[in-house]
C-alpha cells in the first residue's frame, strides 16, 4: 500500500521561488533533477520515486510533492 499511496503524489516546482542552488539536484537519489538556466527542471516524472528528499532540503520551498486534485 505504501508504494501505491506514494504513487498518487506528483512532483511540483515553482520557478519563481527556485534560486538555482542545486541542492535538490545533488541529493536526488535517482538523478531526475537538473538546473536549466539556474532553475530546477524535472527530467523524468515517472522515474521519480516520490521520496521527498528534494522537498525536505529545498531552502526555497520551490519543489514539493502534492496529490493531484484532478486524479
Amino acid at each position: 500500500m505504501e508504494q501505491e499511496q506514494k504513487k498518487k503524489k506528483n512532483l511540483k516546482t515553482i520557478r519563481e521561488w527556485c534560486k538555482g542552488c542545486g541542492i535538490c539536484v545533488a541529493f536526488c537519489p535517482v538523478k531526475v533533477l537538473e538546473l536549466e538556466n539556474e532553475k530546477v527542471k524535472v527530467l523524468d516524472y515517472d522515474k521519480c520515486t516520490r521520496c521527498g528528499l528534494c522537498e525536505l532540503r529545498c531552502p526555497d520551498l520551490a519543489i514539493y510533492l502534492e496529490e493531484d486534485q484532478n486524479e
Binding site: 515553482i14 521561488w17 526555497d60 520551498l61 502534492e66
Partner: peptide, 24 residues
C-alpha cells in the same frame, strides 16, 4: 502558491524569501 505545508503555515505572498541561493 506552494505545497500543502506552505499553503497552511506560510504567508506565501511574502515569498520568495530574502535568503541567498542555497542558504540552509
Amino acid at each position: 502558491l506552494g505545497s500543502p505545508i506552505v499553503k497552511e503555515y506560510f504567508r506565501s505572498d511574502r515569498l520568495p524569501h530574502i535568503w541567498c541561493p542555497g542558504c540552509g
